Simulated scan of single mutants.
Amino acid sequence: MINYLYQLMWLVLHILASIYETLHFVLLRLQALLLWSYDLSYNSTTLTRRDRAFLQRCKAELTKLPRHLNIIIGPDPLASVNESVVARILSYAQIIGIDCVSLYDLRSKLDGQISIENLCKSSKASWSKLQHNQFEWGLDTPAPETKTLDKNGYKENGVHQENGSACNGDIYQNKTPAHLKIYQISDIDNRAAIAKICRELFEQRKTTKVQNLLTDRKQLEQHISDELAKHIKWKIVDPEFSIIFNRDMCTFGMLPWQTRFTEFHTFETGRYVNAESFAKLLYGYSKCEQRWGK
């Protein structure tokens, strides 16, 4: 009798949790629709100016920023992460001052897997392919409309231009926009790569080189790190911050050797991806204190 009662209570709780999750998701989608409709009423230049001003204010308040931002897109179909969403995140990361972004998309091509090269080709941003799955991406800086002219230079929206152009409230003095490095990570770059390297070490366990590595743990770790860098053909700073687009918190084997000290945050499924929601994640990361065992 008691077991049946427990099963009934568990079933009721499961139903209530499912109803709450569904209603919460619908509420977020309605909110996303309203925000999307609001953004749709403005042109891209106005949106870029607004987002840049907002993110610059946030940057002044943040106590720390990640140098390497990692994006994990899980198999959850409700996440609805497409090229437009990733392009917005890349632009936000560049505005806020992040050095590089790595993308790990677990979906198949039939399910909408994102290719960085195709994303760069379809966007208006300037880009170049550096080497294996490594790209450089930059925002366009359209020439502003000239409204007034004085003897010292042009004035646009109250901003004085000095040997450059005023774009989105900033002054550029013969400076090109900073480029963002982007890395495409696949399944073979994580646990499979580590297993392959360890298998090779085991096969060569009787050699002098491997025996010397086994006597010094730091040298062994450095050897594995170097071999991993050779496998993916580029060296990157370990990601300090990772955004997971999935209902469940899971790293899905994302570079386990390089993510020992990474802060993982799940982006709420159904929420609209804009500068405000991106900044909210950065504020959460900024408040995290890593005490390193103290």
Score class of each variant (00 low, 15 high):
residue 11 L to H: 10
residue 13 L to I: 08
residue 16 L to H: 04
residue 29 R to N: 02
residue 30 L to R: 08
residue 31 Q to I: 05
residue 43 N to E: 05
residue 45 T to E: 15
residue 45 T to D: 15
residue 48 T to H: 10
residue 48 T to P: 01
residue 52 R to G: 06
residue 57 R to D: 12
residue 61 E to I: 07
residue 61 E to N: 11
residue 71 I to A: 03
residue 79 A to V: 01
residue 80 S to Q: 09
residue 81 V to F: 04
residue 90 L to Q: 00
residue 91 S to Y: 07
residue 95 I to A: 00
residue 95 I to E: 04
residue 96 I to C: 05
residue 97 G to M: 04
residue 98 I to M: 06
residue 99 D to M: 09
residue 101 V to L: 01
residue 104 Y to S: 07
residue 114 I to A: 07
residue 116 I to T: 02
residue 122 S to C: 09
residue 124 K to E: 10
residue 124 K to L: 11
residue 131 Q to I: 09
residue 137 W to I: 00
residue 140 D to Y: 11
residue 140 D to M: 14
residue 142 P to Q: 12
residue 143 A to Q: 15
residue 143 A to E: 15
residue 151 K to A: 15
residue 153 G to M: 07
residue 155 K to P: 03
residue 156 E to D: 12
residue 161 Q to F: 08
residue 162 E to G: 10
residue 162 E to I: 14
residue 163 N to E: 10
residue 164 G to L: 08
residue 164 G to S: 07
residue 165 S to A: 13
residue 165 S to C: 11
residue 170 D to A: 13
residue 170 D to Y: 09
residue 171 I to W: 06
residue 174 N to L: 13
residue 177 P to W: 02
residue 190 N to G: 10
residue 193 A to E: 03
residue 196 K to G: 05
residue 201 L to D: 01
residue 216 D to E: 09
residue 218 K to T: 14
residue 224 I to F: 09
residue 225 S to P: 04
residue 225 S to V: 12
residue 230 K to Y: 12
residue 232 I to H: 12
residue 233 K to R: 15
residue 237 V to A: 15
residue 238 D to L: 06
residue 242 S to K: 03
residue 244 I to H: 03
residue 247 R to L: 05
residue 247 R to F: 07
residue 251 T to L: 09
residue 251 T to I: 05
residue 256 P to T: 03
residue 260 R to S: 13
residue 260 R to Q: 12
residue 261 F to D: 06
residue 269 T to I: 09
residue 272 Y to D: 03
residue 272 Y to A: 01
residue 273 V to T: 08
residue 277 S to N: 05
residue 278 F to K: 07
residue 279 A to N: 03
residue 280 K to R: 14
residue 283 Y to W: 08
residue 285 Y to T: 01
residue 288 C to H: 12
residue 289 E to V: 12
residue 290 Q to K: 14
residue 292 W to Y: 14
